[in-house]
Write a protein that binds this DNA or RNA. Structure first.
Length: 577
RNA sequence: GCCCCGGUAGCUCAGCUGGAUAGAGCAGCGGCCUUCUAAGCCGCGGGUCGCAGGUUCGAGUCCUGCCCGGGGCGCCA
């Protein structure tokens, strides 16, 4: 519909340019759905864009554009020149009625697209190290990354979801030490540090308490889950592992257990990764050495203060960075460069890193380093997101990662369910802070909850269709539905809204911004729920068979769009509530 | 001090890569509705789009400077 109109506009523009003897490339013109319905179904800015090229007042060009657009093909109902030189266009009602057939025929495919060039895209997200349960920040990233992946799939690309985690560094060593300390404490071989010592990094830290050594690391993981892992080791092994190193059994036991739980959490959110990559593998297969050698060959590496540095200033960055510490252990940066190099080599056309605001500083170093090693940096994108705050009863809920007194993704899923969780996490644009309103999310009467509002619109539609079935009314076939009885303004408004869906999807995919889908669905539900509710002025199931059939067709079209949109957000399109 | 992200209605936020009179939900107030599934409809109030310049036919949107909030600036990840 819009495409047909756009084609007409483009050829009209070409005609005007040709008449003016201008053989240059035609400028990009847009067709927008105006904010106000009085401005037509579409507003075209072509005359404004052309004004300079043709050296004529925009309104005058708009008049000529209208003449060029006028033809008897039944697409356009009427046009007007408005404002500074917009051409407002109203399409013939019958064209909107055609749309209904198209939506019903497309079904689950409506809104999906086939790209001009199919690309292979990797989306890396979550990537939390297995040191504890997923936090709300991870939860936001999980939903964001998965929705971006779903959008890219919907517009026809090959998508790989990947999770990268670090299981080699200091963090994991501290994890092992924390578990071992709790193990020894459980066996009475060590004393737990005092609460006030744990509360603050500056607090006093006695080496012994009541004659027992304090072995818990100062920056150890304080969460209850650590003690639970230790307790299960006690149960399995008794005191036979007191001499085992923290690096070995304890670290591995913790990693296995915690990573398993993270995967369970992701499963609850209906998120499945295709590939898990860990840092250790790059040590094992020599990619770390290879990367450092390549950087060295490019003259980007030097040694100073017994450490190995990356000469990032030579790449135009603001400072150099250590890539191998004095201890001989690489920093996080080096494996990250090796990892991204590996991604490029795996042949993805596009690599999308989804990262939290605390990680973004790292990105230019990685990107510019692998660019220096010959990779095309335009193939790597960063999608950044800000943190999540939790509000309950009008005040912020305090989160402390250090003390492990934070609300986890699992906690919230248990409270509000995966569907509401996903909706709330994806409904804001990523660059902004996200305020998770717990009261709203778990509102039991569901009056204000936007997630339920959309789901309900879908369920309610299914309800009407069920009722039609009970009354022996056949649901219309896509090919045979006659939508012409749909003449009410609210019905046409709905059809026009549904027509926007494919554009909304492709724009959201191109911008990597799934929140547009959430807003769009809210708008559709905002038109549809009132329509259904007002069963006095317009009932779907009426005495008039033609009208009933048309309205059932519209209901099916709305249901289709809601279901397809919810699918893009990974939210269940429930049939009954 | 430097870098990144925000600042739009009482609150939480959209604003489609520069378009017309800046929108939604919630909260408040006043009416109506009782239904195909409850969560419905209409109206009202509420805004110097952080501030000041600039770019142009046109700026919430782009540029510059400043103010406020968050995050970062490690031989942590």
């Amino acid at each position: 519909m819009k495409e047909r109109l756009l084609e007409k506009v483009e050829s009209a523009v070409a005609k005007l340019l040709a008449e003016a003897g201008d053989s240059g490339a035609a400028p990009a013109v847009s067709l927008e759905v105006p904010r106000q319905a009085e401005h037509g179904d579409f507003a075209c800015n072509a005359a404004l864009v052309l004004a300079k090229r043709l050296k004529q007042p925009p309104r005058q060009i708009a008049e000529r554009l209208m003449e060029a657009l006028a033809s008897g093909d039944g697409l356009i109902e009427r046009m007007e020149v408005a404002g500074p030189g917009f051409v407002n266009v109203w399409l013939a009602e019958a064209r909107w009625h055609d749309l209904l057939t198209r939506i019903l025929a497309a079904g689950p495919e409506y809104g999906r697209a086939t790209p001009e060039t199919k690309r292979s895209i990797q989306v890396e997200f979550v990537s939390a190290n297995p040191t504890g349960p997923l936090t709300l920040g991870h939860g936001r990233q999980a939903v964001l990354g998965d929705c971006i992946a779903r959008l890219l799939e919907a517009v026809g690309h090959d998508v790989t979801r990947e999770y990268y985690f670090n299981n080699g560094g200091r963090q994991m060593r501290v994890l092992g030490e924390s578990v071992k300390a709790r193990y020894l404490e459980a066996l009475g071989r060590a004393a737990p540090p005092r609460a006030q010592s744990l509360a603050s990094p500056d607090a006093e830290w006695p080496e012994q308490i009541d004659g027992l050594p304090v072995v818990f690391p100062k920056d150890g993981y304080q969460g209850e889950y650590i003690a639970e892992i230790a307790a299960s080791l006690c149960e399995r092994f008794g005191d036979t592992k007191v001499d085992e190193s923290a690096e070995g059994l304890f670290r591995e036991a913790a990693e296995t257990k915690i990573f398993g739980e993270i995967q369970e959490t992701l499963k609850r959110l209906d998120i499945a990764f295709d590939v898990y990559t860990n840092e250790k593998s790059f040590y094992d297969d020599g990619k770390i050495e290879e990367t450092i050698a390549a950087l060295r060959e490019r003259g980007l590496v030097y040694e100073q203060d017994e450490a190995v540095w990356l000469k990032a200033t030579e790449l135009g960055l603001d400072r150099d960075r250590v890539i191998v510490k004095r201890t001989g252990e690489p920093t996080y940066l080096l494996p990250d460069i090796a990892y991204h190099r590996d991604k490029i080599r795996r042949g993805f056309d596009c690599i999308i890193d989804v990262q939290g605001a605390d990680h973004i500083e790292q990105f230019p170093f990685v990107r510019d380093s692998i660019a220096a090693l010959g990779a095309d940096p335009s193939r790597i994108e960063l999608v950044m997101h800000q943190f999540v705050t939790l509000t309950q009863g009008g005040t912020q809920v305090k989160q402390s990662t250090r003390r492990a007194t934070y609300v986890t993704v699992d906690d919230l899923i248990a409270d509000v369910g995966a569907d509401v969780f996903r909706f709330f996490m994806v409904q804001r644009r990523a660059e902004g802070h996200l305020d998770f309103d717990l009261d709203l999310a778990k509102d039991t009467d569901w009056k204000k909850n936007p997630a339920y509002y959309v789901q309900y619109a879908h369920a309610r539609t299914c309800g009407v269709e069920r009722k039609a079935g009970e009354q022996g009314i056949a649901l219309p076939e896509a090919a045979s539905v006659d939508a012409s009885p749909l003449v009410l303004s609210e019905e046409l408004a709905l059809l026009k809204k549904l027509a926007e869906f494919p554009d909304v999807v492709s724009d959201a995919a191109a911008a990597r911004e799934p929140h547009h889908i959430a807003y769009f669905l809210r708008e559709v539900a905002g038109l549809w729920n009132p329509y259904l509710q007002d069963g006095v002025h317009h009932r779907i199931l009426s005495d008039d068979p033609a009208l009933t059939s048309a309205r059932l067709g519209m209901a099916a079209a709305v249901r289709t769009v809601l279901a397809n949109g919810l699918q893009l957000l990974g939210i269940t399109a429930v049939e009954q509530m």
